[in-house]
């Protein structure tokens, strides 16, 4: 029997629930030696800002137990460069291209979103209101409900397609932020972004990262991510896309059971560039083994009685 892996995300039909997280998949081109993007539900490409950003100074990465810290700082060449140089290449991929939009001010988010709105083959944007890396950036929007609503609503006015908002886990009540972005007009919520963390080199008595603190990702954050996906799925009516330490198909199934309609593979891409397509296969095997016709049946199907 054919197992149906397709999922519906705010009117978009993904061929399967597996997508790749922004900042871990470049613009997709870097992966062409390893996989066919057409085998994925969607790809979320690297964050785009209004102007060129050089990002933070080296060192930007620290390996930690079961994960890694990064402080890349949204290095990218700006939205004009994306539209002119990157888009003509990525639009040929046989999958949804979703652009992660970042900014330091409401006006910057709006400016970028307006330009991306014009790109025919980009059906959605993911608003990054949470990146903890940039001193002037995202953090504040994603941690205060009123500001989360404000930036979402401002982008909603100019962006006519599917608006996804990616939440920061560095908050006390994740559901308050989730409700706030839905109020602002979000069609989809993705979570979680990296957890703010820190690494110290005891021998040198110095921080490992040039920015002292950075974003923690990898399996170390999976339990936190699962909990937040579960809470948000119960609190809002919009679809949730879950991520945070997904390394294999079992991890992906756990997120779907917790309430995610689709998932993003992030840090795992660094270790196994074929992780995402292996997860697609693993999900298919799971459906086969449990005799489930469609992955949709599993969304939020966690048994808690």
């Amino acid at each position: 029997m054919m197992r149906d892996l397709s999922v519906d995300i705010a009117g978009l039909t993904f061929r399967n629930p597996v997508t790749t997280a922004s900042g871990t998949f470049g613009y997709g081109e870097e992966f062409l030696d390893f996989l066919d993007p057409g085998q994925l539900g969607a790809i979320f490409v690297k964050a785009v800002t209004a102007k060129n950003r050089d990002g933070n100074a080296y060192p930007r990465m620290a390996e930690t137990t079961g994960g890694m810290l990064n402080s890349v700082g949204l290095q990218n060449k700006g939205v004009d460069h994306f539209c002119r140089e990157i888009y003509p290449k990525v639009k040929k991929f046989d999958t949804y291209i979703i652009v992660n939009v970042s900014g330091s001010t409401v006006e910057e988010y709006v400016e970028v979103a307006e330009q991306i709105n014009e790109l025919e083959k980009v059906p959605a944007i993911e608003l990054n209101i949470s990146c903890p890396n940039v001193k002037l950036g995202g953090m504040a929007f994603g941690t205060v409900p009123a500001m989360a609503t404000e930036v979402t609503a401002a982008v909603r006015k100019v962006y006519k397609k599917v608006l996804m908002v990616k939440l920061s886990p560095n908050v006390t009540h994740i559901t308050d932020i989730a409700k706030a972005v839905v109020e602002g007009g979000a069609d989809v919520i993705t979570l979680i972004n990296t957890l703010l963390g820190m690494a110290i080199d005891a021998e040198r008595r110095r921080p490992v990262l040039s920015t002292i603190t950075g974003g923690l990702s990898g399996p170390a954050i999976k339990p936190v991510a699962l909990r937040m996906v579960w809470q948000v799925h119960k609190a809002v009516a919009v679809p949730v896309i879950g991520l945070g330490g997904i390394m294999n198909a079992t991890d992906a199934i756990e997120f779907i059971l917790a309430g995610a309609s689709a998932i993003q593979v992030g840090t795992a891409n660094f270790i196994d560039p074929q992780a995402s397509i292996k997860i697609v296969e693993g999900i298919r095997e799971y459906l086969e083994r449990h005799k489930i016709a469609s992955i949709k049946e599993l969304v939020g199907a966690l048994r808690t009685e």
Partner: peptide, 16 residues
């Protein structure tokens, strides 16, 4: 020999 996560150009951690 900068520290890196991926090695194939996507993590942007090893910049100089």
């Amino acid at each position: 020999e900068n520290t890196m996560a991926c090695g194939f150009g996507v993590c942007l951690c090893c910049i100089t």
